[in-house]
Design a protein around this nucleic acid. Sequence first.
DNA 1: GACTTTTTCTGTACGTCGTACAGTATATGT
DNA 2: ACATATACTGTACGACGTACAGAAAAAGTC
Lengths: 235, 235
Amino acid sequence: MRASGAETAATRSGRGRRRTLSEDEILDAAMALLDEGGPKAASIRGIAAAVGVAPNAVYTYFPDKAAVVRALIERLLGEVNHDVFADRAQPWRLRLEALALQLRQRLCEHPGAVPLMIGGPMNGPHALSLNERLLELLADAGLDPVDAARASYLLIVYAFGSIALQLADVHDSGPAPPEAERIAARKRAFALAPADRYPRAAAAATTMAEYVSTEQYLWGLRRLLDGITARADSS
Amino acid sequence: MRASGAETAATRSGRGRRRTLSEDEILDAAMALLDEGGPKAASIRGIAAAVGVAPNAVYTYFPDKAAVVRALIERLLGEVNHDVFADRAQPWRLRLEALALQLRQRLCEHPGAVPLMIGGPMNGPHALSLNERLLELLADAGLDPVDAARASYLLIVYAFGSIALQLADVHDSGPAPPEAERIAARKRAFALAPADRYPRAAAAATTMAEYVSTEQYLWGLRRLLDGITARADSS
DNA sequence: GACTTTTTCTGTACGTCGTACAGTATATGT
DNA sequence: ACATATACTGTACGACGTACAGAAAAAGTC
């Protein structure tokens, strides 16, 4: 079902006991736990219990927990569809937006993955490939990719994850904080303004996707691109 | 030395044994551990050892670890100087930049605090006060603060922390990863491009402040504000 | 078939974490 | 002197990541 096989391809010499699992089964379980219980729930012991093996059996598939996390993020990044923004015939602004939306999509689907991404560098092939694409894209746009443009773009794409995370309230929670309290926390989290002053902010933020909506996200990105374009035109 | 007294003002009825510490001493130790060893080093047991008490003695001052973390972040945010950007006589762009630079400054000084901020909602008085200021500021700028402008601004301020964190490599490291490896990790982290293609990116990134420099940071912010301004003028 | 070899699993254990509980030390009130 | 209230220490529990030793299951060799 999945293409990637984590980071080690495995020798598979044919001799020895058969594995009862696959890397992807472990990652599936890890992602499920991550989605419903946050990073704290995605423990080695929890994953092992979910797939029905002893905790240390996981170490047959991954050398340590960090490797599981890396593979998880890699697989997530591997799911982004390159077709849209890789087409160099398209205008660069559209392609940048497409890439940003793809990334946003992944973060929305798995907000619990955000702290994992932030918690360590992403060196996997998919991460690097996406970065290559971004550099190409910025070069096509006539911008110096190593300078500020790339940083700003990443800034805005990335930060959405941070904010989204706060709103989703998945950081460290136990099994399932009562929904009412989660909503209250969400309201406090970034809504910050007294409800009577800015009622729309405090009111209906039920999902992170709603709070920083696709429209808001794209709006900010477009204003940034506006500024970049204007600067590029005038110079 | 410090103004704030964490979150509980303490009853101090006069009766009973005298405390050997203050909340601020604990937070000082926590911050020191955080700065040099990352979030992993800022453990309750580590903090207690640093201030010379038994681990559970900390619970006299803070109800649990989350409270320590919250207080730590609050104190950090309390250090931002409001004078610059609170002056409503100044043009709003300058004020926005001043605020952004203040926040960037805190994140630069304590990169280890970034995952803590991301790991949970920030509800403290200082956090809320800063948000109030931002809302005022955006209102002064004639923007609807609950809409996209605020989100975008926060996005860019916030995300710097995420990127910076990766470059600083403070996430989870043990006592002190050898400097050579830290630099190598930093190069891989976000530099991402083959060194021969974009040599400047892969080369001299020694500190996070250098990698996303103040200039780059401000550049991105200004392009965003350019875009916002242009949109506001034309509508 | 029996036997060796290779790989994957389980059992157990160590050190770490946050923190609950029970006691002890030290201060103020009476 | 004594009760009382507060701050500490000792100890312990459960959960974590994971190292080590063995048992279980497959394949290759005779």
